[in-house]
Computed example of a mutant assay.
Amino acid sequence: MKGIIIASFGSIYKEAVNTSIGVIESKVRTLYSNMEVRRVFLSDALVDKWNDKYDEHISSFTEVMQEFNRMGIDEVYIQPITLVADQCYQQMRKQALKFLHSSEYGFTQISIGKPLLTSLGIKNYADDYEATLDGILRHVNTKALNKSIILMANGQNQLEFSTLQLKAMYGAAPNVAVFTTNGFPTFKQALTLVDRMGHQDVLVVPLALIGSAHLMDYLGGERSDSIYALLAEEGYNVDIWNEGLGENPYVQDLFLKHLGQAVRMSDRKRNSRTESVQPMMTSSRMEVQSMIS
């Protein structure tokens, strides 16, 4: 039996989760109707807060893996709904390996899909960065005409977000500036790029998968340190894109693509093992027959 885990950091904002993670889950259930699909939050603190607030139960990663084991599911596919391979993602990978190699559980295979920003497009691999930029631009569409687009990332994975900026500058999206709230590139550096672009109008798009009320207040709220207020002080006409990336159908499809790659790669490995074992089995039968005769 096979099961799929849709794993995100999580959020306490139910509506925002349903319009992002929930939609991705529905698409996964449609594509893989023969598999059990479960949602998990990777933050134990958010699991507890959610379950205290809502009747709809959310499970931790450990709880779902234990449930799958009780159900007799031995092949598990995990698709992280994360932008980058951050600390939370790395912890989940370690947990998955422990389940795979533990004698207490009967898992024969655990495959993990890629986060959104992983492959650089070198050799024959897909370019996750260009695909993400293209998905954002296609979704905002006419809202971005004759405007600079500022992508705001809330995280510390500076290499991935710096790479996203380089990909944009090298032609994928020359009117896009990227900054992070806790690292490099900084907001001030993004402003320098926007100034060079020469547009008076700016569209701010959150590089966050779940568009929580807290995030939107930080971007466009009436507080004096909101991104909207800071840009307005610089003389720009500002619009805020009030959605998380998880609501973007093009980004949703990129996650489905990563899950599909994990499933196909797993199938190829299984078939390869079967083909390598078959000749050995045939040879063994011939040797046994020879010994009997």
Rank of each mutant, 00 (worst) to 15 (best):
D128G: 08
R138I: 05
T30Y: 06
L256Y: 07
G235P: 14
L97Q: 12
E75S: 07
T163E: 12
D195R: 03
V37D: 14
T108W: 09
F41Y: 13
I110K: 11
Y105D: 04
S162G: 12
R270Y: 07
A232I: 09
I110R: 07
S11D: 00
D267M: 13
V40G: 02
V76G: 05
N124R: 09
M65W: 11
D44N: 10
S103V: 04
N175F: 08
E234N: 14
S272F: 13
G135T: 00
E130M: 00
R38Q: 15
D253T: 03
E233W: 04
I149N: 09
M35Q: 07
L145R: 06
P115H: 08
H139Y: 07
N146E: 15
S272V: 06
N34T: 11
T30M: 07
Q79Y: 03
D127E: 13
K167A: 13
L166M: 06
G135S: 13
E56F: 01
D217S: 05
M280D: 14
L256G: 10
A144L: 04
A213L: 08
M286E: 11
L120A: 13
E234Y: 15
A45H: 02
A208L: 05
Q278N: 13
Y13N: 03
A232C: 14
K49T: 01
S102A: 06
S224L: 02
R268P: 01
A232K: 15
G155I: 02
S60V: 04
V194M: 15
S224C: 00
M71F: 08
F41V: 01
V23A: 09
V47Q: 02
V251Q: 10
T62A: 10
S111W: 08
S266T: 04
Q91Y: 12
G221I: 02
S276C: 11
P115I: 07
E247W: 00
R270M: 12
V140F: 06
F255C: 11
R93F: 12
Q79H: 05
Y105W: 12
A45R: 03
D267R: 11
K2E: 15
N154I: 04
G235C: 13
S111G: 10
I58Q: 07
H57Y: 10
R29C: 11
E234K: 15
F41K: 02
A85T: 04
E247A: 15
Y125M: 14
A144C: 06
E63C: 05
Q200L: 07
E233M: 10
E160G: 02
I12F: 01
A126P: 14
N248R: 09
S224K: 04
L133T: 02
Y250D: 15
F255I: 09
Q252T: 06
D217C: 00
E130V: 07
Y89L: 04
I292Q: 08
K53I: 00
R93A: 13
K123M: 14
I150Q: 03
V23I: 14
G113F: 12
K188S: 14
Y218V: 00
Q95V: 09
E75W: 05
G221Q: 03
D44M: 02
M197L: 13
A208Q: 05
L231R: 13
D134S: 11
G198K: 02
R285S: 14
